[in-house]
Design a protein around this nucleic acid. Structure first.
Lengths: 108, 108
DNA sequence: ACGATATTTAGATATTTGGCTAAATATCGA
DNA sequence: TCGATATTTAGCCAAATATCTAAATATCGT
C-alpha cells in the first residue's frame, strides 16, 4: 500500500496508469507518449509492477502492460474511506475491485 | 495536485493526516506520535502545508495544524473518478469540497 | 528583561530517485 | 544462423529527500 502511493507520486507513472485505463498497451506504445528514453520508462514500469498496479504479458517480442484496477481501487478507496471522503455505500457499476466493507473508525 | 500525491507518498505524512482527521493538533502533539526529531517533523509539516493539505494556526507559543479535508478530497476524488472508481454520483453528506462535475473521458 | 517552552531554520550527510547511454537478452523472420 | 526489433539490465550522475544536531525565533510567565 505504501508502494502504491510511492508509485503514484510520479506524474509520468500516473499518466501511464491513465493510458492503461483505456486499453492494455505495449511498453513501446506507452513510451511513445513520453519524452523520456525507453530505459527510463522501463524503470517506471518496474515501479508500477512492484506496486502491483500493472501486469506484464509477454507476446512474442513485445510486452503488453495491463492496468490492475482492483489494486488501485483498493488502495485509493481504502485511504479515501479512512477520511470519510466520498466513495463507499454503493459498489459503482463496472467496478472490478473487491467489495470491502465500509470501515468507519480505523486509526492505525 | 502533483504536490498532493508527493505529500501522500510518505507514510509519516499520511499518518499525520489521519491523526488530524480527528481533531486539530499542535506540532508537538503530532510529533509525539512519531519516532523522529522535531525538525524532521517540521519538514514534513512544511511539505503538507505546501500541498495545501494542512493549515497552520499559531496560538501563543504553539502552532495548531488542521486538516484541509476539501483539498485532500478534491485530489483523491478527482483522480479516483478519472478511473471510474467508486465515488462520484452523490456528494457525500458533510462533504466540504467542490461539486466538480463528473468528467468522463479526460486524457490529457 | 530573563528563563523556559514550542517550533522552525541552517547546515551537514546518506539514501533514493529519475534520468541518460551503452550493452545484454529475447524473439521474430528470412 | 543472422540481422532487425523490443525491452530490460548495468553503470553512471545530478537532484531531491529524509534525517540529524545545533542554533535561531517567538512567546509566555514572572
Amino acid at each position: 500500500m505504501n508502494s502504491v502511493f510511492k508509485a503514484l507520486a510520479d506524474p509520468t507513472r500516473r499518466k501511464v496508469l491513465e493510458l492503461l485505463r483505456q486499453r492494455p498497451m505495449t511498453a513501446g506504445e506507452l513510451s511513445d507518449h513520453f519524452p523520456v528514453s525507453r530505459p527510463t520508462m522501463s524503470a517506471h514500469f518496474a515501479v508500477l509492477r512492484e506496486a502491483d498496479l500493472i501486469e506484464a504479458n509477454k507476446i512474442g517480442t513485445s510486452i503488453t502492460y495491463q492496468l490492475k484496477l482492483s489494486v488501485l481501487e483498493d488502495a485509493l478507496l481504502g485511504f479515501t474511506q479512512l477520511f470519510g471522503i466520498g466513495a463507499a455505500e454503493r459498489t459503482p457499476a463496472g467496478a472490478t475491485g473487491s467489495p470491502k466493507p465500509t470501515r468507519e473508525g480505523a486509526d492505525e
